[in-house]
Amino acid sequence: MTDTPLLEVHDITAGFGAVTVLHGVSFEVPRGSIAGIFGLNGAGKSVTMKCLAGVVPTRSGSVLFDGEDVTRMSPERRVARGMGHVPQGRQVFPDLTVEENLRLGAYTLRRRNRSRYQAALDGVFDRFPVLRDRRTQKAGTMSGGQQASLAVGRALINEPQLILVDEPSAGLSPVATLELDAVLQEVAKTGVTMVLVEQNIAFGLSLVDTAHLMQTGTVVHSGPVAELDDQTLATHLGIGRVLQAAAGSALAARQAPRPKEKARARRTA
């Protein structure tokens, strides 16, 4: 493993027409870590993710992935380079079966090395047994939580170095959010590098190592979750004193070390 961060974002700006949404966003994601981007509506979280994916063009600044400048690279080629996506709203292909969704997810893997596909498929099925049970079911007919598993599995099967997860809980029922939480905890254990955008801040904080707080198009605070206090959180999210109480309780839940961290400590040792 090298020391360079897997993902480096240098001062990117982006927008639509006359509106500039990102005014210079910078952060780094070290290998094997999970970064979270938090902020209120309109802070620019999703646009940042779309810039990382290459779906929204950046106006200035650069994105380095695995040491390579990918700022002008198409989304498809970024995927071939090892980016994986769990897009906003999950976006599974509703009229394709579960297995077909996974086969498409492995599109670049199968082009690189077709023989690895079966093993990768089995790996995903082992991790998400529900997908094996429903392999011939149309993805659109599954529940929200199952679709979330499929979206995550579809990203994992391509053996990505980095997974970008964009508001996975949006539009999910509370029960499905629980399922999703379990799924993401599971993925976190594999040691894959991940960037997570989440509206549900309490949920998001429970998953990530490093939090990047965004406000009106810039990152206003970056730091390990362990060092975050409720004051910082409330101030930098721009939601003022009102939410301090809630933020505090979310953090309290987060302070206790989780098995995941121990696992990572072992791995990096």
Binding site: P174, T177, L178, I201, F203, S206, A245, A246
Partner: peptide
């Protein structure tokens, strides 16, 4: 407050 910030679903 819960509605606005979201509850930690695990709990």
């Amino acid at each position: 407050v819960t509605a606005y910030l979201g509850a930690a679903p695990a709990r």
